[in-house]
């Protein structure tokens, strides 16, 4: 019988990896195509990866000295890979979402309350299906999913 592979936790190897140019292009293109946020917005940041998460971290003059530190967290959780899709985190949208030009859902305070409470709303809008930015009275709350006439909350 084939032995089941278990993922090992390496306490000494917590530094996330710097992703390849191609992978970076893929993640930043998603932000540009989905929300209209240009890749230059993130030119002073590295994209790092742990398992299915991408982290945004300021580009240091040199990374190597920092990599000798045993770290707990590095940077801001930016994007997740959910099956074959990329999903922006609410934290990252709250930080950079004001630069978005599309796929923004404006809710009134009562609608927002309902969405946060019930986690999904019947919702019709002239939007492409997929992840959206939830905004209410100029404040960006984070990530939602618009699909099949419903708005699903991914707000923390």
């Amino acid at each position: 019988m084939k032995k089941k592979r278990r993922k090992k936790i390496h306490k000494e190897a917590k530094w996330p990896r710097v992703i390849s140019f191609e992978e970076r292009e893929e993640v930043l293109s998603f932000w540009e195509e989905r929300f209209g946020i240009p890749p230059e917005t993130f030119e002073n940041y590295l994209l790092l990866s742990t398992a299915k998460n991408y982290w945004l971290f300021v580009k240091p003059p040199e990374l190597r000295p920092l990599q000798n530190l045993q770290v707990q967290t590095v940077g801001l959780l930016f994007t997740r890979r959910v099956s074959k899709w990329l999903k922006p985190t609410s934290t990252a949208l709250q930080r950079f979402g004001h630069l978005a030009t599309k796929n923004i859902v404006e809710l009134g305070p009562l609608e927002l309350d309902r969405l946060r409470r019930e986690k999904r709303l019947e919702f019709e809008a002239d939007l492409e299906e997929g992840y959206v930015i939830i905004k209410c009275e100029k404040k960006i709350w984070g990530c939602g999913l618009y699909a099949k006439g419903k708005l699903i909350s991914y707000l923390p």
Partner: peptide, 16 residues
Amino acid sequence: VANLKRLGVASALTTL
């Protein structure tokens, strides 16, 4: 870590 996330800081790493 919670405060760094809440304030949207991307320029910090944390150590213990």
